[in-house]
Computed example of a mutant assay.
Amino acid sequence: MSAAHNDGAALRERVHPDEWAARVQLAACYRIFAMLGWTELIYNHITLRVPDSASGGEMQFLINPFGLHYSEVCASNLVKINLAGEILDGSPHPINPAGYVLHSCIHAGVPGAHCVMHTHTTAGVAVASLATGLSQSNFYSAQLHGMVAYHDFEGITIRADEGPRVVASIGRRKAVILRNHGLLAWGETLPLAFAVLWTLQRACDVQLATQSMGAPLPVPEAIAAQCTRDSFQFDPAMSAGQDVFDALVRLLERGDDSYKQ
């Protein structure tokens, strides 16, 4: 039995079952991001709130250990912190201040932000660096009508005073373009945040390809609004991304299920 497995078994015995379930789900998400190529060496973050049933109502969340690649993240090495950035689980791993500052302000300031995801994909940063931002010109961006927020670039997110401005920029919009920086999504559940980010990423992928060939063909406002209403992937009554996330977990497990340790 590996040392990592022993460590995971020991932690699982110490934490609330609901926290362990959250750890497993978040670790799977990190591995899925790695599988999709949504990684930036050891940087960027996905954070998930610890359920109130496990935290006693205190706002705590799980974040990746700084220094590990997403493919190395597992349930037991995720780091539990509070809104002050204090490590609560005795983890030997540090956390990235840039991730803590950005994610904690959203968890604390945006009602329902149970999960927050941030990426620096090429297409995402490219669109974030355009003055015009996301173009309402393809199948994916048409499903995000009225759902996209923008936040102006203020440098690396390590200063707490930027937090209120981030929250004000986001409002209630789940798809966020951090100008000159990258993409962000949040949701009441991890699968919902994933569905939003995947759609935003695909919209950027297609926009980047389109603009390399010529001017995009705009989708009329009324059609885009209708597409967003008709899209079921964000609807809690239609699983809100859970079925898609479950399918990716099954794909992941066919190759490696060590994220559960």
Rank of each mutant, 00 (worst) to 15 (best):
T199A: 05
Y140H: 12
A113Q: 08
C29Q: 07
G187I: 14
T199S: 04
L134N: 04
H114R: 10
E188M: 02
S2R: 05
M213I: 03
G214Q: 02
S71W: 02
L200V: 02
G133E: 10
A123M: 00
A131N: 09
L48H: 10
D256V: 04
V15R: 01
D152P: 00
E40I: 07
G112F: 10
T47I: 06
D246R: 06
E58M: 11
G90W: 06
M117Y: 03
Y259H: 08
L200K: 00
P191E: 10
D235P: 05
V101S: 15
G37H: 06
T189N: 13
W38K: 03
A175F: 06
F33D: 12
V127G: 00
A240S: 08
H93G: 03
H118Q: 07
A237H: 13
E40T: 08
V244H: 11
R254L: 06
V127P: 01
A84E: 15
I87V: 15
Q201C: 09
D161A: 05
D7G: 01
P17N: 13
L192Q: 13
R23P: 10
T132S: 13
H107S: 14
Y150Q: 03
Q25V: 12
A175I: 03
D205W: 00
A22Y: 02
V125A: 13
H45S: 10
P94R: 15
D235A: 00
G163T: 09
A193K: 05
L251G: 14
A168C: 05
T119F: 08
A84T: 07
E19F: 01
F139T: 06
L248W: 11
L78S: 00
I32P: 12
G90L: 08
R165V: 15
T47D: 14
T132H: 07
C74F: 02
P97M: 13
A128P: 01
G214N: 03
A160N: 11
A4L: 07
V79Q: 10
S53A: 14
S137Q: 13
T121P: 02
V110E: 05
F139Y: 11
Q242D: 14
E86L: 12
E40S: 09
D235N: 03
R159M: 12
T122W: 07
M117T: 07
D243Q: 13
R165P: 00
V249A: 11
S231D: 07
A75H: 13
M117H: 05
Q136K: 05
D230I: 02
